[in-house]
């Protein structure tokens, strides 16, 4: 009987699966109408500029979310990766080593976090709360009492352009997309999120998935750290501090279920990141002040989460 009903709506359901895409398209349309002729290559450029770092970290974070876990330390991890890359550049004057250092730091943080989670058998979320505070302190240590550390902006000027950043995003996205959809690990992580016990009884190793997911996120964090330095070569205590939250918001806006599972999709990260930047631009174009802007975004966020979680409060029908 349920089948008959679903059948009737399956076409509609297929369309609504892409509702976050519609949201993005709606935002693009409104932005276009609002801005009219003042949309230039510059406008498009800054949208990419502002979305790219969040999009990269969020893309990696989808892995962790897909098996129902939650990492709030990603912003701080990115800050640490960025700091280490600045220090590396100042010692070696090599962009390549700087990138390498950033990725190494990102991956190391991921490995440490995941191994601790697996060894201590702690919920990832709890662990990342502790990690957040450790990493924030580490940022302070790396600053060494100064208010900021920096590299000369000329050093990275050659990379400070939209095509390069877009290229990095696309490469990383493709890597994650590929692993998520075409490998055993990706499939297993989704299944793990959908039902951990059924996953275990199907031979899915929670530990293996956790470690691999954190390594993948680590690569993203490393790239994001590098791009953070390119975007603003001067880093301080609050660098990337809001990134952790932005990533979370982006993922939710992108249509990723917070509990992970079967409906997890990697595109949510990119759709969400661009949606937020566009939403911000649309609100600015309506002349909202920054305060009103924040409130409008927060309300929309709450609404999205509310709607997304209605599904958990299922109706109980007698059989």
């Amino acid at each position: 009987m349920v089948e008959r009903f679903t059948n009737k709506f399956s076409g509609l359901k297929r369309i609504t699966n892409y509702s976050s895409w519609f949201g993005l398209i709606a935002l693009i349309s409104i932005y276009y109408i609002q801005m009219g002729e003042s949309i230039t290559a510059y406008s498009m450029g800054i949208i990419i500029e502002q979305a790219v770092i969040v999009a990269i970290v969020a893309t990696g974070a989808i892995f962790i979310f897909s098996f129902g876990q939650f990492d709030i330390s990603l912003g701080a991890a990115t800050a640490v990766a960025a700091m280490v890359s600045v220090i590396t550049y100042n010692r070696t004057e090599s962009i390549f080593l700087m990138l390498l250092a950033s990725i190494l730091v990102g991956v190391s943080i991921g490995v440490i976090e995941s191994i601790l989670a697996v060894l201590l058998n702690l919920p990832v979320f709890v662990l990342t709360v502790a990690m957040l505070s450790i990493l924030s302190s580490l940022v302070r240590v790396l600053l060494g009492g100064q208010s900021s550390i920096s590299i000369p902006s000329d050093a990275v000027a050659a990379f400070d352009n939209v095509p390069f950043k877009l290229f990095i995003l696309i490469c990383y996205f493709l890597l994650c997309f590929f692993i998520f959809n075409y490998t055993k690990v990706g499939r297993e992580s989704k299944f793990l999120g959908a039902n951990p016990i059924a996953a275990k009884q199907s031979g899915v190793s929670n530990k293996k998935i956790t470690i691999i997911a954190f390594i993948l996120v680590g690569i993203g964090v490393g790239l994001a750290g590098f791009l953070t330095v390119i975007r603003a070569p001067m880093l301080g205590q609050t660098t990337a501090a809001s990134l952790g939250l932005d990533v979370l918001v982006a993922i939710v806006f992108g249509g990723m279920p917070l509990s992970g599972g079967a409906r997890s999709k990697i595109s949510a990260a990119v759709v969400g990141a661009f949606s937020i930047v566009l939403l911000n631009q649309v609100l600015l174009s309506f002349g909202f002040s920054s305060g009103q802007n924040q409130i409008a975004k927060a309300i929309l966020f709450l609404f999205v989460v509310f709607v997304a979680t209605i599904n958990y409060r299922k109706k109980i029908l007698p059989r």
Binding site: F9, N17, S19, F22, A26, F303
Partner: peptide
Amino acid sequence: CLNKIGLL
């Protein structure tokens, strides 16, 4: 799907 439409 109703929720999603609602959201949209």
